Amino acid sequence: MMAYMNPGPHYSVNALALSGPSVDLMHQAVPYPSAPRKQRRERTTFTRSQLEELEALFAKTQYPDVYAREEVALKINLPESRVQVWFKNRRAKCRQQRQQQKQQQQPPGGQAKARPAKRKAGTSPRPSTDVCPDPLGISDSYSPPLPGPSGSPTTAVATVSIWSPASESPLPEAQRAGLVASGPSLTSAPYAMTYAPASAFCSSPSAYGSPSSYFSGLDPYLSPMVPQLGGPALSPLSGPSVGPSLAQSPTSLSGQSYGAYSPVDSLEFKDPTGTWKFTYNPMDPLDYKDQSAWKFQIL
């Protein structure tokens, strides 16, 4: 009977010793046993002879290597770790002494450095960015050149030099007046198309007034536009458009034309069986010896 009264063996659950049927240790109110408190290391007290050895090595170098620390530790009968900690504390003490010396050398008012006064946003004049500046400075420094007289040679050079070769001289006033084509001369031969040399188009003023001019072949195509416009036809070669000034309004060009419109200028042929003959000019830059190549039959 006494065997049943004795408590059973101890069981360990999660490293906790349980005594038989008792489960009081598993209750929430019972805390787990805490780790033992780490003991504080005792402070090391250095003797005068030990301090002399350490100070002598510190005077040589503030960062001794492990071999120098072990050698000193053997002399003063201390572990190497204590020597390492002593050098660490000695360097910190040396830095603190240097900072105190710097503070003593500075004057009393030198510690508080005078800061520059901050400028207020409204006091300083700042350039306004509302208006974009002129990058080319046209509004201040540029002045347009004065327009020359209508009959000045410089204007003629600016007008005619675009179309004339570089080897030719500017046309005088008398020749510029001949550039304007007359109405009857352009409409006299509506079906004849003559190819003149390129030099005649640039230099010869008579080429624009003769039936064999460069633009005589364009007349049949330009004249039928007159009834559609409801007024006189516009002429690209009329009046002052080739003269001194090219800047004319469309209203000033509306009254200039080749001449009176005639039914002869239409595109319809009077004789459907007729042929169109292209007159060959020996001055043509295209060297075609066979003139029969310039004739064709309209079917």
Score class of each variant (00 low, 15 high):
A3Q: 01
P7F: 14
P9I: 14
P9G: 07
N14W: 15
A15G: 08
A17F: 12
L18T: 01
S19P: 05
G20L: 13
P21S: 05
L25R: 05
L25W: 10
Q28C: 09
V30R: 09
P31N: 10
Y32A: 01
S34G: 07
Q39I: 10
R40L: 15
E42H: 05
T47Y: 07
T47S: 06
L51K: 08
E52M: 06
E52A: 04
E55M: 05
F58K: 15
F58A: 12
A59P: 12
T61L: 10
T61W: 08
Y63N: 12
D65C: 05
E70F: 11
V72Q: 14
A73W: 15
K75G: 12
N77L: 08
P79Y: 13
P79S: 10
S81N: 04
Q84A: 06
Q84M: 03
R90E: 13
R91I: 15
R91A: 15
C94F: 05
Q96W: 04
Q104E: 04
Q105F: 04
Q105C: 10
Q106T: 02
Q106F: 07
Q106C: 06
P107D: 04
P107L: 07
A117V: 09
A117G: 09
K120T: 01
T123K: 04
P127L: 09
P127F: 11
P135M: 05
S139N: 04
S141C: 04
Y142M: 10
P144Y: 01
P147N: 06
P149V: 02
A156N: 02
A158P: 01
V160T: 00
S164P: 01
P165T: 03
A166E: 01
E168D: 05
E168I: 11
P170T: 07
E173I: 14
E173C: 13
A174I: 06
R176G: 03
T187Y: 10
S188R: 14
A189N: 04
Y191I: 06
A192H: 08
A192F: 13
M193K: 02
T194V: 15
P197A: 06
A198C: 02
A200N: 01
F201P: 02
C202W: 13
Y208S: 04
Y208G: 01
S210N: 03
F215A: 01
F215L: 02
G217W: 14
P220Q: 04
M225S: 01
L229Y: 05
L229N: 01
G230Y: 15
G231Q: 00
G231E: 01
A233D: 02
S238V: 11
S238G: 05
P240D: 00
P244E: 02
P244R: 11
Q248L: 14
S249A: 04
Q256D: 05
S257W: 08
Y261F: 09
D265K: 12
D265N: 14
S266L: 11
L267C: 01
L267S: 00
E268I: 12
K270D: 05
T273R: 09
T273I: 06
K277F: 12
F278N: 00
F278W: 00
T279R: 10
M283V: 04
M283D: 03
M283S: 03
P285R: 14
L286F: 07
D287A: 14
Q291W: 11
W294P: 00
W294F: 01
W294E: 00
F296C: 00
Q297R: 09
L299C: 01
